[in-house]
């Protein structure tokens, strides 16, 4: 006979409970399967499959280099523009696509949400993990570029890269969670999102160095992606010394974004299935 080891008590839900974390851990395999599904489906649907993850930043880099680097002559802190913009794009595309996918994660999986229970947080998180895989694939181009232009990264700085990635991850998930929750309630928000992301691109030093903002550049630091991209360039290309203050600010901002995101998400989570 099966020993009844699990007892589940269902009650009107509170916003947050510590057992939620335990539950999330219990469902970790589902996190893996959702990410696996998204990757598998995408690589089955598009003919070029994994190439898409490389193709997209590569073409963007070429176009940006021609127009912003060569024609508009935007400064690039003394680094060849292609590699300068590619480092920015690499992190930016991870952030923006992760943000876009997390905010749509609930609506896209509406049919599952209304039919089966699992911690809903898994959906947006798995969306970001999928983008992380793209990030690593696209990094291969960066390796090529660095080799071509003869850059060797600071060895000590390489340890910094995972940290920067975590900051970008937190910022994307945090903002995405809030948007996902709003998205369920107000279905028109998603139409404004691409515009919002595009505006963000221009206030983040992706195609230009933060130094062109001069003394105002410190205000740009509120944007956590600024710290991420500036320091990624510092580590990989040695454009400037690593700015720990900036990293600190970025980490703090993205942690706050994440906490707000989780709070908003958990608050709305209770009635997703009722309004979806």
């Amino acid at each position: 006979m099966v020993v009844m080891s699990t007892t589940i008590v269902i009650k009107p839900k509170k916003i947050f409970h510590w057992s939620d974390l335990k539950e999330l851990w219990h469902y970790r395999e589902l996190l893996y399967f959702f990410s696996w599904r998204d990757l598998k489906v995408r690589y089955k649907q598009t003919a070029i499959g994994a190439g898409w993850a490389i193709f997209q930043p590569l073409i963007t880099m070429v176009v940006f280099t021609v127009f912003f680097g060569t024609l508009a002559k935007i400064p690039s802190d003394g680094v060849p523009y292609p590699i300068f913009v590619y480092v920015g794009l690499l992190f930016w595309q991870f952030f923006s696509s992760a943000l876009g996918d997390t905010s749509n994660a609930l609506i896209a999986n509406q049919s599952i949400i209304t039919k089966v229970y699992f911690p809903r947080l898994i959906l947006p998180v798995s969306a970001v993990i999928t983008k992380l895989v793209d990030f690593f694939i696209a990094s291969l181009i960066l390796l090529g570029l660095m080799f071509y232009y003869g850059y060797t990264p600071h060895l000590g700085g390489l340890i910094l890269l995972p940290l920067l990635l975590i900051i970008a991850f937190m910022a994307a998930v945090g903002t995405g969670l809030s948007l996902a929750a709003i998205n369920v309630k107000y279905r028109d928000v998603r139409y404004a999102l691409p515009f919002f992301i595009q505006i963000l691109l221009f206030v983040t030093p992706v195609i230009y160095p933060a130094s062109i903002a001069g003394e105002y550049s410190k205000y740009l630091a509120i944007n956590p992606m600024m710290g991420v991209i500036q320091n990624a360039r510092a580590t990989l290309l040695g454009t400037m010394p690593i700015n720990w203050t900036l990293i600190g600010i970025s980490a703090l901002t993205s942690a706050i974004l994440l906490l707000i995101g989780i709070y908003v998400f958990k608050k709305v989570e209770r009635y997703f299935a009722d309004i979806a």
Partner: peptide
């Protein structure tokens, strides 16, 4: 199946639930 929470009351399930 825990898809939606009750407004009031309590349910005790002594075992793993599949739906």
């Amino acid at each position: 199946s825990q898809i939606t929470p009750p407004t009031e009351g309590e349910i005790v399930l002594r075992g793993r639930v599949g739906s």
